[in-house]
Amino acid sequence: MNFSVVQSQFFPLLINGLALGFIYVLISVGYTMVYGVLRLINFANSEIFMLGTFATIIVSRTVFKFDINSQPSHGMKLLIVLLCCLLAAMLTSGVVAVLVELVAYRRLRSRGTNRLGSLISAIGTSIVLSEGVRLLTHSLPESSPRVLSKFYIFTIHGVGLRIDQFLVIISGALFFFAVDRFVKLTRIGKAIRAVSMSEENSRLMGINLNRVISITFLVGGLVTGAAAFLYETVYETTVFNVGFNLGIAAFTAAVLGGIGNLRGAFYGGLTLGLAEEFFSAVLGTQWKEVTVFVVLVLVLLVRPNGLFGEAIQQSRV
């Protein structure tokens, strides 16, 4: 145990934790929105994320001809490359999410299958997608060419904020804010909230349930895709099962915050990102994965519905 590291490395750990935390926040949004409307844990969300990371790499390599030896780009070109990669990741994840719903869940739902059936279908879809990519990539990890040179924006007393971390924190916050406003203020967002409060009563309002569910998967997928792009700018690598640990962590974050609740995804994701960085600094990185679940168990002991669980229960009355 090395507590002095918390003092000496406080700010670097804080920045790393926030960057990781915002990636968790965005993936958690994917889990929590789907759970809100269907009461279903979409296990395929981790693969929706994984496909987003590959889309990012494919676009930077094939469209913009980046490879392992190329120089990072600058100025206008940098902006265009980053935006195209972001869009590719979002679209890929968004479209895959909608397809997963159509293929794996809608048919079961229309036949009145119970939740357990959908859950098994979710796990099956997750395995099919990750094993499919494993075959295509021969189980090998792929590295992301460096598009963005990782300079420090500023340094104070030896503590620097790197551009990629800055990008993750700012755009993570922006994406979350956008989804939050979308759900609160737009007409379709209100329909999503209505469905999450009561499916039957929403249908009595003239809400087309299947359309709302598709849009929920689309939005959850777009945000998960944005997380995939941001993940690639910081960590610059991916593999067919990259979604497994990240997905479990993001799902944990959603439960931690109170699943089905957007604010819960926000605070749950940040809590988990920070906890991972600080605990692994003190205990050693081999404890990184353990801390995720220790935090979860501790929170659920005190608040069985997660940090914002009460808000969900109100919304379910």
Binding site: R187, K190, A191, R193, A194, M197, S198, N201, M205, G206, I207, N208, Q314, S315, V317
Partner: peptide, 17 residues
């Protein structure tokens, strides 16, 4: 819909119009 205001509840009554 308990998490929505009275006005939002009324508005959603015209959702499809």
């Amino acid at each position: 819909f308990p998490g929505m205001t009275v006005l939002e509840n009324l508005e959603i009554g015209k959702y499809f119009r």
